[in-house]
Design a protein around this nucleic acid. Structure first.
Lengths: 206, 206
DNA sequence: GCCTAGGTCCCGTTA
DNA sequence: TAACGGGGCCTAGGC
């Protein structure tokens, strides 16, 4: 990994165009060729970048200024990052080796597993039929039966937003066309989320 | 901005938990307190991070090892990043100053402006009534009239996905209840996108 | 290989 | 301020 602190101006041209005026920034060059331009603030997202695989070429403009050109996977025809380097304040390289990688836990899948093990917490007497019940428009997170034998479709989300409610509505419409599922009355839906947005709540009660 | 190359182990606990085994990495500390842990590959996203505002405290564990603790906006009760520093290979600080910021061009808004100026490209004889036509559930991107005087609602997207079609469907349902708009027949919808996903196409023709 | 859904999403804009 | 919608989204999983 190469770390360069430099006064620079950056121009990206690709799916959109973006321009960064001349200022002092960090330019990070990873050994897969990817380039990240960071300022001293903001969040984890760089101001401008090039995703791997990429290639950095150091050149000089007609009027003698240092210019770095970074091409993406499609080469000179695809996304391009032009970095005009005015002054280099620091330039260092470091051998980091391969990273063993990240281990995560606690996202939506985990939430779904918990609810699959304890469907009774959603509604009394609820029992699991199966997880990821397949339909023509995608899998229903949890298909359950209540104490009266009626089917209940459960949509699990970390954040309850309007499109989640619509997703559940689509499933319900489809499932209710299946006569084998609505033997004991129509299929109901439960929207389970850690957080429900107001717009979603309005639509859900509709 | 402080740049540290170090052999370290990182643990995040917050909305989820994540663990990074001991390895050599770049630790970037920005002057708003945010911390980014990068490996020498992957994409622009750090392996682990803490968003601003954040505070870094350098401490020592019971058994005498160096441990950095980063707390997020909610302090010790909220998100926490624990960095066990085994060996520091490089440690440098740089004054970057404020960044003038990024200028973008060419995203959805720009596409909408282009279509507003040339509605005829969507359908022959189409003329613009207004952009961002307000409704109870949000603004319609473009409201137009065709050559027979019927209203046409246009939803503009860079990528045509299923939720865009549903958004347009909601608008159409609402607009068709407005008698002043459907004087010359019902309100039609046009879904304009640079790219249409197959799932969206299926729903749209439904 | 494409396509879909989720994210410690981030981020701007607006009510 | 909170919420909603877009993103050069990125990334993992399914078909």
């Amino acid at each position: 990994m190469r770390l360069v602190i430099a006064r620079c101006q950056v121009d990206y041209a690709g799916r959109l165009t973006a321009h960064l005026p001349m200022a002092t920034r960090l330019i990070m060059v990873k050994n897969d060729g990817s380039v990240l331009v960071h300022s001293d603030g903001g969040s984890y997202k760089p101001l401008n970048w090039m995703s791997p695989p990429a290639r950095l070429r150091e050149g000089v403009t007609e009027d003698g200024r240092v210019e770095w050109t970074v091409h993406g996977k499609d080469g000179p025809d695809g996304d391009t990052l032009r970095i005009l380097v005015d002054e280099v304040l620091s330039d260092s390289s470091h051998d980091l080796g391969l990273d063993p990688g990240l281990q995560k836990d606690g996202v939506e899948k985990h939430l779904q597993e918990l609810l699959a093990d304890h469907p009774g917490t959603l509604a009394p007497g609820l029992t699991l039929v199966r997880r990821e019940y397949p339909t023509a428009i995608g899998p229903v997170d949890l298909l359950c039966r209540d104490d009266r034998g009626s089917c209940v479709a459960v949509e699990v989300k970390r954040r309850g937003d309007i499109d989640g409610v619509e997703q559940l509505t689509r499933y319900l419409e489809l499932l209710n066309r299946d006569s084998t599922l609505c033997l004991n009355g129509s299929v109901r839906g439960i929207f389970a989320a850690q957080e429900i947005r107001p717009q979603a709540r309005v639509l859900a009660t509709d």
